[in-house]
Structure formats: C-alpha cells, structure tokens
C-alpha cells in the first residue's frame, strides 16, 4: 500500500516530510496493528519487539519520534530510555504505560521523554502527540 495515493479522512494530516517512527513494545500484535494503521496515515514506521531490537534499530537509522512501552520482558522502558539518552539520539520519545504506573512515566519525562500515554489509547490522540513531538524536534533543530 506504500506509495499509493490515498484520500483519507484522517483527523491529522501528515507533515510535509514523512515522520520516521520507531514503535517499541514486546506485544507484537500491538506493534503490528499500530504500525499498519500509522503507515496508512503516512508515517514511516519501524517496529521493535524488545528493548534490544529498539537499540539495534536506532544504531542503523535515525528516527524522529519513538513510541516506547515502559514494561517489557527483557528490559524496562526506562532502561531503554536511559540507553537512548546515552547514545545522544536526536529523537523525541512518547512512552506508553499501564494505568497506575504513571510514576515511571513521570520518571521518564524527568530524564528527557517528551510525553506519555496510557494504554490503551485512542489512535488520534497518539497521532496528535506524535505531531507535537515532531514539531518540537523541528523547532529545536
């Protein structure tokens, strides 16, 4: 479906450049469906199913925004965030948390994450946050 011109009723129109997204979550089903839906909305999506995957992905490619689940089997989202910070990546991060773990989310924000969303979240809300993050990144350039 990539490259195909789509007349869509998306609430948020994509920016001029395709935003490069990295989705990190150990729930493969979630990552896949989210990637499909976001690609359909003209985002350039890369999937990572674990903290390790995510780190490998950022080594090979630049991203504008990463969506990071905070609770994963191999690595805590906060740990991943810290590693990203160490790598000095020019990338905004939106965290996904469960209800009741906002503390971790706040911790993430304190060490440089852009914002967080509680799972499950509305797609349009996620896209709005992605665009906000992207705009912020553009501004800081």
């Amino acid at each position: 479906m990539n490259g195909k011109e789509v007349h869509s009723v998306n609430p948020v129109a994509p920016e001029t450049d395709r935003i490069r997204l990295l989705i990190v979550d150990d729930e493969e089903g979630y990552v896949n469906v989210l990637a499909n839906r976001l690609e359909k909305r003209h985002f350039d999506v890369t999937k990572a199913f674990s903290g390790g995957d995510a780190i490998r992905a950022v080594r090979g490619q630049d991203f504008d925004v990463a969506i990071l689940d905070l609770k994963m089997e191999d690595m805590d989202g906060i740990e991943v965030l810290k590693i990203f910070n160490q790598m000095g990546l020019d990338m905004e991060i939106i965290m996904l948390t469960g209800h009741g773990s906002q503390e971790a989310a706040r911790e993430g924000i304190s060490i440089g994450a852009f914002d967080y969303l509680t799972k499950p979240c509305e797609l349009h809300e996620l896209i709005r946050k992605i665009n906000q993050a992207y705009r912020k990144r553009k501004k800081s350039e």
Partner: peptide, 27 residues
Amino acid sequence: AGIAHEINNPVAIMVEEAGWIGDLLEE
C-alpha cells in the same frame, strides 16, 4: 495494577485491530 496491565495489552490490540479493519474498509 499487575492485572490491569495484563488486560490493557490485549484490549489495546483488539481495539487497534478493529481500528485497522475500519481503515481497510475505508480504503
């Protein structure tokens, strides 16, 4: 808190999959 997190993931996937179907129906 543990249970909530566990339920949230499948629910999130279900909702997103439904959304995906919606997307495809439009296309």
